[in-house]
Nucleic acid binder design. Sequence first.
RNA 1: GCCGAAGUGGUGAAAUGGCAGACGCGCCGGACUCAAAAUCCGGUACUGGCGACAGUGUGUGGGUUCAAGUCCCACCUUCGGCACCA
Length: 806
Amino acid sequence: MDLISIEKKWQKKWKDTRLYAFDRRNAEKKWYVLEMFSYPSGAKLHVGHWYNYGPADTYARFKRMQGYNVFHPMGFDSFGLPAENYAIKSGVHPQDSTMMNIATMKRQLRDMGATFDWDYEINTCMPDYYKWTQWCFLQLYGKGLAYRKEAPVNWCPSCNTVLANEQVISGVCERCKTEVTKKNLTQWFFRITAYAEELLSGLDRIDWPEKTKLMQRNWIGRSEGGEIVFPIKGGGEFTVFTTRADTLFGCTYCVLAPEHPLVKEIVTGEHRAKVEQYVSRTMKESEIDRLSTTREKTGVFTGAYAINPINGREVPIYIADYVLYSYGTGAVMAVPAHDERDFEFAKKYGLPIERVIRSNDGSPDPLPYVDYGVLIGSGKFDAQTSEAACRSIIEELGRSGRGILKVNYRLRDWLISRQRYWGAPIPIVYCKKCGMVPVPEQELPVLLPYDVDFTPDGTSPLAKHEGFMNAVCPSCGGKARRDADTMDTFVCSSWYFLRYPDARNSEKPFDKALIDRILPVDKYIGGAEHACMHLLYARFFVKALRDMGHLSFDEPFLSLVHQGTILGPDGERMSKSRGNVISPDAYIEQYGSDVFRMYLMFGFSYFDGGAWNDDGIKAIYRFLERVQRLIERAGSAGFRSGVDAKKELGYILNMTIKSVASDLDSFSFNTAIARLMELVNALYKHIEGSVTDEYTHHAIKSLVLLLAPFAPHFSEEMWEALGGPYSVFNQSFPICDESALALDRVEVPVQVNGKLRGVVLLPAGCAEEEARNIALADEKIASILSGMQVMKVIIVKDKIVNIIAK
RNA sequence: GCCGAAGUGGUGAAAUGGCAGACGCGCCGGACUCAAAAUCCGGUACUGGCGACAGUGUGUGGGUUCAAGUCCCACCUUCGGCACCA
């Protein structure tokens, strides 16, 4: 069987007849199936692409055959670092290499034979796309959701350049292995924290893997607590955030983050030199070092004292780098008896450790004791539980304006500036007279120039391009300079699913009425590695755009699945350096794309993936040949008399239909294919020689329809051979006839004292009394029970009989 | 350290608390063939027995239940995420 030329034949016909064209005017029964779009890397499609797109396409075809108007677009996430790094190494311009890679990948995706409608293709590095990425930026800016502030960036002192987080591999530069340091630059942020609460609560209403939702919950990191104001002895005050106000009486010192602006003001003469030295040393340290939990805690005394507002006690104020300026208020109250970090620090610097909580049940509770318990040594709050005191102490302080209940999130605002070339320019200019001015919408896009020197030398590549940098101030018409940075590529991918339905719109990023009909995405399929980046950013964008009135739904992706990872044959992640990369190409040349995708679906549990092993790939080929032989025989039809084919085949056929449909809905491709194999086995048993009949013929046609989503080219060919009208994908997916599943009699296992002892044939749905009698009368069961007394019989209808005897 | 997921034959893997190992791969046997390949049919968890059958089995140890791979507790191993978030 020449699967390769069969595939070519049908790919051409599908293309010529525009079989997979999506009619966006018809949003009735729409079904938006989306895979995370691809990054056009130089290499060919790898196993991971196939594992994502192959099964997802099978799902899309299934939905189509179920009568859905399936929207299944594809595009390219084509800005980003790899193209730029490749350019630095090879000298090939990112735009040239990217466009070439896209052409190659597109050809390969077509060879896959997927249902993508290329009329809706998008490409994020093209001006007609990034114009609207810039528009999104301006929208956020207009609502105060984009702002500029100074922040540290990763800096490689050897390459003399800024690095993105993903270029910092365990503290060193991915290219030259030099230790990465911090450098302060003024950069753009998106205020994703404004949506922290909704991003958290919205998770309860979407059908996503629990694991992914949990990761987002942890990432957002909501914690309930309170803010407490500590006056400073001699004037001034500062605020701390705590989740453990119940331990306030045990506070024996306070700590400010080294960056805290108050540090300069409160430090006293003799301590100034040491404090300044400590602060500057902290600044130099890399984030990795500073955030390492295993590192010993350090800090210095400022010479100043704070007054504990609950009991008026004076406590020393330290600075220490274990307190983060970016979380809470950048200042904490330290309770060494009930916090591990404070305990360690207090031990080291000889600070007092005072217990104010004991365990609820009086069980031994060595310090530091960090669980909730009962208050002691806390004045009128003694004997309150921790839970109660967390609230009552804040309320007490609130009366004098020194305490308030507060919720904090670990989520930080999203830093989107990249000191890089290959990205969407930030549509802002800086005018000496007018200051920061957004580029008006009608002047978009701010084009990314081609002739840019992107050799890394410590400045943003665009800063060296005078033609780009020089701009006219939209406000006063005077001379202005552009922002030299580009946007994080995650900005491009935060709204691409909104652009697909309206990809050719040159007036707007998308038409509201249109995307309100076609969005949200009904099934989103992609890797789990994006849990706290792309998948969070996209949710933020949708909520922000909704609040501006550009769309009217709350979540971009109603239902999400993650495919697993296919590992190398050695069980390790595939990588060039390990030399364990499996290329799909050789397999596809030999067996074709249907067999390859089917093997991926059959050989692995979709969500788990696993180590590559091609032992079973021949089995899939063999299976398709087996189907083909079956159809050849059916073609030379005759009639076998005296056999009720419907009775013989009806049950298995309808059971198969039911199972395959539900397995496809739950992405359980391996079991769906197993069911198809069972059906084929049953048909082989049923058909003797070349004789067949009408019902058998019906069963074989149904088999081809069931198989079509899995092996689209092959099934189209078989459908034609059976005389079916073009295309098999315009046929309805078979529907299960429930009446065929009703059996007269069922085999029911019989247990004695929980051990399987036999099987009896019972009338389906028979009463307990009858089941009991038949089971007890069974020859084998009776002999086991001889000499025993039956105490009880448990019967689950049509499932099991369990006889308790002694 | 904290959070989460997983651990099942020689092997990839299946099992709404109800016959563990479906469907494949591999292996063994048979048919077809001069022979081989391909194909078709049958067998295949482990231990004992010629056998019918019996016993034991889902990482380890306990528990709940008439019944546990599945639920609960503790532990071991592997993988993923977070990592001083007060």
